[in-house]
Nucleic acid binder design. Structure first.
Length: 373
RNA sequence: GCGUGAUUGGUGAAGUGGUUAACACGGCGGAUUGUGGUUCCGUUAUGCAAGGGUUCGAUCCCCUUAUCGCGCC
């Protein structure tokens, strides 16, 4: 069975949506945030811990799992869910994002057939195609597979982006044709940078292929401005069907999530909460803080006194700072728990605000507070 | 006691008679948005044991003192 999106409500003054995502591994509310588990694990956390945080979908990665341990081993294990002991929904990224950062010479390495690039592990030459990406994802048996797209840099010209969008559409079609897993849904990806005509074209052509969901991609690349990111969403959303989920790829800054939800996005994923956690940073209502700062040396209070996460209920900033300073893995774990819970809770509050038609007020309050810190 | 060798930042240490004293660690701060992240980027000794001298100029040469190491009575 494929996923099913059930639209429950659109907020009065915005395009924000409240919905339910029915999957083979449970039903979950949107808007939602999906933590990233590139290598079949959300770094340092167990599936049980993620469930405790009310986290739903985990995002994993085709490219990384293809290299290690290989899709055949995961297939033999009984699929990704069995392999990693996670019975919630899993989404796999196509590998497009990684591959394009590994392809050195875009002109030469990206061809109609696929992409030539070097393995980040041993440097050997690899070739990934839309078909192969989908076939790997079929074997991984994730709930949602992503089309293999070209993810061009923010600095790309209109001319480059136009060709790229056209190719991404051809690739989406090729991937869809070989997709062969009745329990797996497939999403299409809208590209086109911050150009209205390209986003519109990309959305209209991609939706013609009738995917199970659509994502806005090519966002938050190498120094793209927030304005361009919001444009990318605004120019794409009007052409996407109401009854399919919309996923903004790679976005997870709290403010960006709010802005995305207001513009009609249902799903987000991001490495930010876990990455900054490993580097000692925590999201708070008053902005992001760096636990490594000397001022927390003797701060015997939780990161946030009103946070319901395991880290805040049991540990102080001084202790977590000590762990991070000593490079003890528990530090990154506790901060990952806090940061993911922070974003999950943010989506819970956003849903409540949509329900009460108070999203814009919520945004105003949140941003005001967030910038105070 | 005599002889001898050392003494460079929080630490381990390079180094030179001449504008800004390597490098590493540590400290302090920042970055991070479909994870090549125990990563990346800043910054961190107005001073080379102390005092005096030689010199246009000394951390580098000389003298004295202090401290430490080594050898001999």
């Amino acid at each position: 069975m494929k996923i099913k999106y059930e639209l429950k409500k659109v907020e009065k003054e915005t395009k924000a949506r409240l919905g339910l995502l029915h999957t083979n591994h449970g039903t979950f509310e949107t808007p939602m945030f999906m933590p990233v588990g590139t290598l079949a694990t959300v770094k340092t956390l167990t599936p049980e811990e993620l469930k405790e945080m009310n986290s739903a979908v985990i995002l994993s990665n085709t490219y990384h799992l293809w290299l290690r341990p290989g899709e055949d081993i995961i297939h033999k294990a009984g699929g990704l869910h069995q392999f990693m002991n996670y019975d919630g929904p899993i989404l796999t990224d196509s590998g497009g994002f990684q591959v394009f950062s590994l392809a050195k010479n875009k002109e030469k390495d990206i061809v109609e057939e696929g992409v030539h690039f070097k393995s980040h592990l041993d440097g050997r030459s690899l070739f990934l195609t839309p078909e192969l990406s989908i076939q790997i994802q079929n074997k991984l048996d994730s709930d949602i597979a992503m089309s293999f797209d070209e993810c061009p840099p923010a600095s790309a010209t209109h001319e480059y982006l136009r060709k790229s969008v056209e190719r991404t559409i051809r690739w989406a079609k090729r991937g869809k044709e070989v997709h062969n897993n009745p329990n797996q849904s497939l999403f299409g990806i809208i590209q086109g940078g911050a150009y209205e005509d390209l986003r519109k074209f990309s959305a209209l052509e991609t939706t013609k292929l009738d995917f199970d969901g659509y994502s806005v991609g090519g966002v938050a690349n190498d120094g793209e401005s927030k304005e361009d990111m919001y444009k990318a969403i605004d120019y794409s959303i009007p052409y996407l069907p109401e009854d399919k989920p919309r996923y903004l790829m790679g976005i997870g800054d709290p403010i960006d999530i709010i802005e995305g939800v207001i513009r009609g996005i249902d799903m987000f994923d991001c490495v930010l909460p876990t990455r900054i956690a490993r580097h000692g940073n925590a999201f708070t209502r008053y902005g992001k803080i760096n636990l490594k700062n000397a001022k927390y040396k003797e701060d015997f209070h939780p990161i946030e006194s009103d946070c319901d996460c395991y880290a805040c209920k049991n540990y102080t900033k001084a202790y977590i700072r000590h762990l991070i300073t000593c490079n003890e893995s528990l530090g990154g774990r506790l901060l990952s728990i806090h940061n993911i819970r922070f974003l999950i809770r943010l989506t819970e509050e956003l849903r409540q605000s949509i329900l009460e038609d108070k999203l814009l007020d919520y945004k105003k309050d949140f941003i005001e507070k967030y910038h105070q810190g």
